[in-house]
Nucleic acid binder design. Structure first.
Lengths: 339, 339
DNA sequence: CCTTGAAATGATACCGATACCATAAACGCG
DNA sequence: CGCGTTTATGGTATCGGTATCATTTCAAGG
């Protein structure tokens, strides 16, 4: 196909160059680094761009420069609103820095995560953000070989791939357990998501046990439960604990919307909270503050995790840092009527 | 840089070709269309791929083939869990078809949407999914010129850019209003998000008014309110309506978590629902079914919108369809104790 | 006035794949 | 057995930009 004004399809830089009567290099400079081009030419190029409706082809640009402005993110679930704040934080920072975000969800499976990582590396992303901290060996070696910078988010893992931005699930869980003890509760039950395939849940369980030990409370297995996520699940956990032999006076629900389900179940049954049993939650959903009574919970830096992850990643990509840093963000306890 | 085994960085197809002792074309075929390559060669290539740790470069592939497997999605807000189900639906279908998802959020601004669309077109996405249905003129002309297929999601708009997959906000709103009337409520109030910049809210308001008219109920401006999103906002709307002169016996909250906020406020004040006032909601958050009393609401096909959007887009991209179709998905009313 | 160097611009190779066409070998069949 | 056809493979141009180096121009300095 020869140089031809009537060519169908998107205008190329060549077309802009012809209209502006300069070379493509000059067009490229005018767009990428306007300071390197004289004001008159810059204006001619701008005019030509508008005239032909030029939309730069970043695919060609990335190939040529072997640079990319795309970041890949893998979360366990897109639908789970817990991750939404983090994604929003990432998105905000990336937009400000003119980068794009690709998202995949792993459905909590390391194999699906590996597939997503592979797809991202095939797209030659400039960086990766992974919520999970456990990966398949193949995923790890692919990432290592690619040399792409990575941020992990899920928990402060002792053996990170590269960079970590998170809070300590262990410390948060321990802090809440201690808080409940300080309030005078003696038999503190603990409900989490299944720990088998999930480092976050394991860390939270460890934090709970660490607190009990420091407090001199013995560990009673009747007071510890693992439940699948969901509101109904929280209600069921409540009933099982109250009807089991453990006689808890407080229950710490360390995951998902379990605490909400339990609180609503108490409301349905007319059980006074904390009169019959105190309830504490892990994640700071707005709703928890509006329930009757409002629920004591942890305030976790979800949005901040997203922001900082994007920031440290961009710092690395843009050569402003090279360290395999680990950022430990803070959590707070929000004390409310339920405890 | 000459052909050199010790070259740093990712292996290229050329390296695989050398190790497998075939041409790059054969490697390309072995990976893209294995049937076209003899079994022995296919095996040699597979071995070579593993040996050099080859990760195909889709950037180069896209440039060369002028095809891309990336879909761009623009939502008003990533954090808002309403959109999360739709995103999940899109993601599920794309993953099954080996496509990638790029996400941007517009923060409810048409200008930011335009910027996101431009960025996606620069990345030469294969298709676009836009939640909003109102766009800047520049955005529209860019999309038109690019020839990229588009799906709009927000509402069944009468003048779509291309394809639409949604439900009728107007009909859903009318149906719920009629439902409340059928239950015997006489003074049905309506609360929505601000309609000024939002076609969805406008459609819902129109549906409410249409129902009133069909029912022969007069329209009382004291019974209609616009509120910003949020739980607190729902509570405030409730109080304003109950203390205003309109004396509603039912309130239909047509947006976000307003109904939840109102329901929780009733619980806090000990107001019986529906004894003092009935409450109906628009979106089917699970929580609504767990409140006391559980809240009547619409069941909207959020996940299905995502799935179908991705499907019709892929159909078009892969040449299985060419029509500018409009898919009208169904909603249902979930009748519960609050009305 | 000539030298030196910075600033502005262009020519050309190249990024890493795929498209297209050519070629060689294997195959089918009257 | 000969010839057309299919199957397997390779050579080379090309996708649309950017990197690199060369060239030109012009101002400043000795």
């Amino acid at each position: 196909m020869a140089l031809d004004d009537t060519r169908r399809g998107a205008a190329r830089m060549r077309d802009v160059a012809r209209v502006a009567q300069v070379s493509t290099m000059t067009v490229s400079r005018a767009l990428m680094d306007p300071g390197k081009v004289s004001p008159e030419v810059r204006a001619r190029v701008a005019e030509a761009v508008a005239a032909v409706g030029y939309v730069p082809n970043k695919v060609a640009g990335s190939l040529s420069s072997s640079r990319s402005k795309v970041i890949g993110l893998v979360v366990p679930s897109i639908e789970n609103s817990l991750f939404a704040s983090t994604i929003q934080g990432i998105s905000d920072v990336l937009r400000r820095h003119d980068h794009q975000l690709m998202i995949a969800d792993s459905g909590y499976s390391a194999e699906a995560e590996e597939a997503a990582i592979r797809a991202f590396l095939e797209q030659r992303v400039a960086g990766l953000i992974l919520h999970d901290t456990t990966h398949t060996p193949d995923a790890v070696s692919m990432i290592r070989r690619s040399g792409v910078p990575v941020v992990e988010n899920g928990t402060l893992t002792p053996e990170p791939l590269d960079m970590v931005v998170s809070y300590s699930n262990h410390d948060a869980s321990r802090a809440m357990t201690q808080h409940l003890a300080r309030l005078g509760y003696q038999r503190i039950a603990f409900v989490s998501l299944p720990a088998s395939a999930n480092q976050r849940s394991r860390d939270r369980q460890r934090g709970y046990k660490a607190a009990l030990e420091e407090l001199g409370h013995g560990f009673d297995p009747r007071l510890m439960l693992e439940m699948p996520p969901g509101l109904a699940s929280g209600a069921e956990a409540l009933l099982r604990l109250m009807e089991g032999g453990g006689h808890p006076d407080a229950i710490f629900f360390a995951g998902d919307v379990l605490a909400m389900g339990a609180s609503l179940e108490c409301a349905r049954r007319g059980w006074p909270v904390p009169g019959k049993v105190a309830i504490a939650a892990f994640d700071n959903f707005d709703l928890l503050g509006h329930l009757v009574p409002p629920v004591t919970t942890l305030k976790l830096p979800r949005l901040e995790i997203g922001r900082r992850s994007a920031e440290v990643l961009l710092d690395r990509i843009q050569g402003r840092s090279s360290a395999a840093i680990s950022v430990d963000l803070r959590f707070e306890i929000i004390h409310r009527g339920s405890t």
